[in-house]
């Protein structure tokens, strides 16, 4: 019963942050600020959705001691790590490519990268 409540809270947090990430993707003015919203918020939301799955698997394992739930736990944790690392590296690559393709940040107060001329 406690496990149900924890799963419910984790899923609510995850869905809320996923929705905020997509809302920011629709709302922000240029590509760099959109990257802020999509990278951080959807990574955090997906981590919490996966934590809900992990808590479910732990409660099932303690109830039934069926060893396939151990596999669910480890594989979900590996998926979370793959997601976090690849999202950070992918957003870095997109930001670098966008700047190289000549798209400058639109509302901007300072741009040291254009001044450095790399």
């Amino acid at each position: 019963m406690i496990a149900d409540t924890i799963i419910f809270i984790f899923l609510i947090i995850g869905l809320l942050f996923n929705a905020l990430g997509v809302l920011g993707l629709l709302r922000f003015p240029d590509v760099y600020t959109r990257l802020h919203a999509s990278t951080k918020a959807t990574t955090f939301g997906s981590i919490f959705l996966c934590l809900g799955v992990v808590v479910f698997a732990i409660s099932q394992y303690l109830g039934t001691s069926d060893s396939q739930y151990l596999m669910v736990i480890t594989h979900t944790i590996i998926a979370v790590f793959a997601l976090a690392i690849t999202n950070a590296a992918g957003s870095h690559a997109i930001a670098r490519a966008a700047h190289r393709s000549g798209q400058k940040p639109d509302p901007v107060v300072v741009d040291k990268l254009t001044e450095a001329g790399l």
Partner: peptide, 23 residues
């Protein structure tokens, strides 16, 4: 990470941004 997401949630809702690229 938690603080970053609360910050992004605040920026998404209010739209209060002042971006720039620093070294």
């Amino acid at each position: 990470l938690t603080k970053a997401n609360l910050d992004v949630a605040y920026r998404v809702i209010t739209g209060n941004v002042r971006p720039g690229i620093i070294r």
